[in-house]
Design a protein around this nucleic acid. Structure first.
Lengths: 121, 121
DNA sequence: GCGGTGCGATCACAACTCCTTCACATCGCC
DNA sequence: GGCGATGTGAAGGAGTTGTGATCGCACCGC
């Protein structure tokens, strides 16, 4: 079964997060997230490049469809909105990681996972 | 046609460490390391010459893009930062080895490996 | 029309990260 | 031991990012 025809149009999975771009829907643990258009779009673009660092400018271009002006903080503001909603939906996980001076990276990390190396038990 | 100037799949591997200079990213065991720009750059330059001893002056030139002033300790300070983060990410491994009077050398060594010759019983 | 509500853009301040430099501790070699 | 090299923690400033608030706009039900 060659179902690899449209990899990016199917379902994007990032840990316990599911994103269905075509359905304009994101799910966490079976429950739909209440995201606005911009929020969903930003999450989708991040998810398409999960585990990779995306520059603000690139994210802005993909989500807003135009060039980002210097000093525009829109991406940061929407990253925050997403973080708040993701934390509410999946407490104990973190998804959007800041890379100082470059941009953001989407990757599912659970807190126990993060702490493993420090808590030894 | 063959623009081999910049291989698009540039992955440096040093034991369990992966460095993707173009992505501004380094990974250990599949997990991204949170490195600053300088840290990543230093690690990258070390990795490009893994197993070779690099003089401080050369490292500084490659990473900072200018000549190192006598007495500048920046390389040492950043080597320390990298060591701390690498140890946190991969306890039991050591990567950056000091060569007294010369500089540093990057090479993956596991502790069991290192200790074998000393702890023989 | 009118108030309520949600969204998006922008601003201002808070909080933080990074880089550099310094000071002192420790190490390695003679 | 003595000297220079390296390890380590910390402080300050510059710049970046986090965060809450404000404002205008569109939509909705009354």
């Amino acid at each position: 079964m060659a179902l690899a025809a449209k990899p990016s149009r199917d379902v994007l999975e990032v840990g316990p997060l599911e994103i269905l771009p075509e359905e304009h829907l994101a799910r966490a643990g079976g429950r739909a997230l209440m995201l606005s258009i911009r929020e969903l779009r930003l999450l989708t673009e991040l998810a398409r490049r999960a585990d990779r660092i995306m520059a603000r400018e690139e994210l802005f271009r993909l989500v807003w469809g135009r060039e980002m002006r210097a000093g525009d903080r829109s991406v940061d503001v929407y990253v925050r909105k997403l973080r708040v909603k993701l934390e509410a939906a999946l407490p104990g996980w973190s998804f959007i990681h800041t890379h100082f001076g470059f941009g953001y990276r989407l990757a599912a990390e659970s807190k126990s996972e993060t702490n493993r190396q420090f808590t030894a038990g």
